[in-house]
Amino acid sequence: MADGGTSELIMLISGLMVAGIVTTLLIASWGGLANSVDTVQNQAEANSKTKAALTSDPMQVSWDQPSCNLSLHIQNTGALELLDGEIGIIVNGTASTVNQTRLLGNSSVWTSGEVAELQVCPSGVTMSAGQEITVTIVVRSEHYQGISGQYSFSEVIRLV
């Protein structure tokens, strides 16, 4: 009887330990999965609220070869504030430098509806008036739920 009680106790403790280990493992793996899904979800939400569009007349974009200056105007068309210091531009396949950024219309922050003027220099690229080129612009938003949204778009423009 005593042997039966001891083995029963051992079985109970073993069962509890196995259950505890399995539960801990499952909860830990589920926690990791949930965090991963949350991060992806927040990123998708931040990206969906980040948007921009060209405000310059694409038929008449100013280009000055000697001073390497392409003037572009970009409107924040998303819901989040954009960071004017974190803009990426590719001009005809060449990564370009944004030399200067300023907001039009007395704005101090690049909120929805506001327009930023960019002075871009595609180093080493020779272009002329009348030429049609493709520009790709990448913008980044302020943090939304700890994550920054990104958006990119391409436009064909004609230089003057």
């Binding site: 405000t55 310059s56 007349d57 038929m59 008449q60 974009v61 100013s62 105007h73 409107q75 039009l104 327009v115 003027e117 003057v160």
Partner: peptide
Amino acid sequence: TWLSIDGALP
């Protein structure tokens, strides 16, 4: 809404 006349500053 922004207007650009003759390619000038919007």
